[in-house]
Design a protein around this nucleic acid. Structure first.
Lengths: 344, 344
DNA sequence: AGTGATGATGTTATCGGTAACATAAACTGG
DNA sequence: CCAGTTTATGTTACCGATAACATCATCACT
């Protein structure tokens, strides 16, 4: 049934050359005469030969792997970043080895350990919070690292991210500008989603800096924060603080869940309550009303990350690394426009 | 800077044993005395030793890779299936090698070719449409394959999927039951998204079987079909056939875009026009009104796929393979409830 | 024609593990 | 207490490619 896959030696024999010549013929930019290259190509096709990377990796000490960990697959923001990475890497012979941590540092450690055995040429992780052992593993590996989606205090290597706290602050400023005073936050489990927590921290700090109460905080369960979580949290928010005027949510998904829950309860958005999200998902644009959100250029983070890596690996020319800091940008939409309320 | 990573030989020397004993000590279920195992473990930790899979793969002819291709990362349905696969594989020493085809058969071929070099132990592809060369490559590899999300006429190996045509038919029957007569479809580029096309085909066939006109078809651009595409398509639908009573969309995302566009145009859903989607995304549940959709148990597809593979690889006991056919299930919601219209 | 540069190909020695077999030590039961 | 088995460990021979160096022909130009 399975008559053993042909090896390079088989191809070499069939073409009447040495394996070294076959090896060369199968790569671009190597000196092999057109004639023999054709001959070898034909022999390879006839045999159905497929190169064995394991062997190539071992011999050349290059695997072509880039290890990437993201918290969740089912999150369009991280998916956008991943897409940015993969698309930028397309064309090079680098391949992404993807793992998702489920927002757990221990799981991240497990993944990184597993990945390091594959001898990746570069590592991309999400966020700046890691277990001590994980930091050590990555450090020892001597492989270029990029931390994304955050601005870690003790970076492991390169960073392409943004200040999550700034994103929270940005929204508070917007709310205040719009004249809202009783402002709440939905999202942020205490231990896992450190980035969401940072946004909440920035949010709280900004409220306090403006002399406003920062107690209307509804912590959702552990991530991923779903629309349902957003909806449940909004219900809790309204039960506990019925006079809340504006709510920022940890993600656009949560914001949508929260907003529709409020609407189902008979509230008008933004007249009765304003809702904002984070992430600039398409959802926020199409929802009715359109949801105010913070854009952090998820895909761009991926593109820059990959670019940084290509530079670090000497695979892309240019001395200037791309700007590593992404600036969160507020997109004001109808869900937080207070004009209606004021005029009514 | 990089003093070369320690090898198994280094660990063996440090622990005063042979490399073979080290190799055994690092795997479970191998006979090594507790004492030496501890000694080796300590030596390995002290040296910061990390096993090199490339070498292990070459020698043992096992890579632990499962190659998986999905059309798009940014699609929550495929992401769910992927999660089902990854989660089910967790615990085994199999690792997913993920690629996305961008709905292109040529890209799929390119990916599969790239993946085969890594000598995966199993392959998972989405759908049953592949290039001839791709079929050949997979066939020659002698590796177990699972095709998902479809019921191919000429399967390459195992199948875990559903009839996309049936999903389209299901929705038509629901529309008819609700008393709708002028029914349209949004989505389906002619060449790329074959599954979306199958849904449309089933949809058209069912309309005709019921003696209804099946001409209200708005083809979106090439996938991925975004909310924006859904919105644009709805506008075209309404321009061309203003009296349309119900519309099925190729995905929930498209349906949401289409529905909100109709609402922005002043139409009431479902009173003025009914909208339905596909995929049972959380979005459809939370939207206002909640959107009628077809549930195909995306995650379950992934779980079953992984289970089939584990069986095929002899890594899971049990002779009975899981049912490979998933039955699309209609979830009727407010967006297609005609009661309001009839009563008005 | 001679000499060095260039291009095409072959030879040899690994890369870092593991399978398979061999061996030595410890244990079993009558 | 010994033959027979089990357990722990070592030896040897690769797995399938590629790096590095060697070789040999060809070509250009003085």
């Amino acid at each position: 049934m399975k008559p053993k896959a042909p090896t390079m030696a088989d191809v070499a024999a069939a073409a009447g050359v040495s394996t070294m010549t076959v090896s060369r013929a199968l790569k671009p930019d190597t000196s092999v005469s057109e004639k023999t290259r054709t001959k070898i190509q034909e022999a390879a096709d006839a045999l159905g030969y497929v190169l064995d990377s394991s062997a190539a990796n071992l011999s050349s000490r290059k695997t072509g792997f880039v290890a990437v960990t993201i918290p969740s697959i089912n999150n369009s923001n991280f998916a956008d970043t991943l897409r940015g990475i993969v698309d930028t890497l397309r064309g090079t012979d680098l391949q992404v080895l993807l793992g998702y941590t489920d927002y757990s540092k221990d799981e991240e450690e497990r993944l990184i350990e597993q990945f390091l055995r594959r001898r990746p040429e570069a590592i991309v992780v999400t966020g700046g919070a890691h277990t001590e052992r994980c930091r050590r593993l990555i450090g020892n590996s001597g492989v270029p690292v990029v931390e994304t989606w955050d601005l870690p205090e003790m970076p492991l290597g390169d960073v392409v991210g943004f200040s999550n706290a700034a994103a929270g602050r940005l929204m508070v400023e917007h709310f205040i500008e719009q004249g809202y005073g009783k402002i709440g936050f939905i999202g942020g489990d205490t231990s896992r989603d450190t980035r969401g927590l940072d946004r909440r921290r920035g949010f709280v700090a900004a409220l306090e800096a403006n002399g406003l109460a920062a107690d209307r905080l509804v912590a959702t369960g552990p991530p991923p924060i779903t629309m349902r979580e957003g909806a449940l949290s909004m219900r809790r928010m309204l039960d506990r603080w019925p006079d809340t005027e504006a709510v920022m949510c940890v993600s656009d998904q949560a914001a949508f869940g929260a907003m529709t829950e409020a609407q189902r309860a008979g509230l008008k958005v933004p007249q009765d309550i304003a809702v904002a999200g984070f992430g600039a998902d398409a959802l926020s644009e199409h929802a009715i009303p359109a949801i105010t959100t913070v854009d952090v250029s998820c895909e761009e983070i991926g593109v820059r990350t990959a670019t940084v890596l290509l530079r670090a690996l000497g695979l892309a020319e240019g001395t200037l690394a791309p700007e590593s800091k992404v600036t969160p940008r507020l997109i004001a939409r109808d869900s937080t426009t207070n004009a209606a309320r004021r005029s009514s």
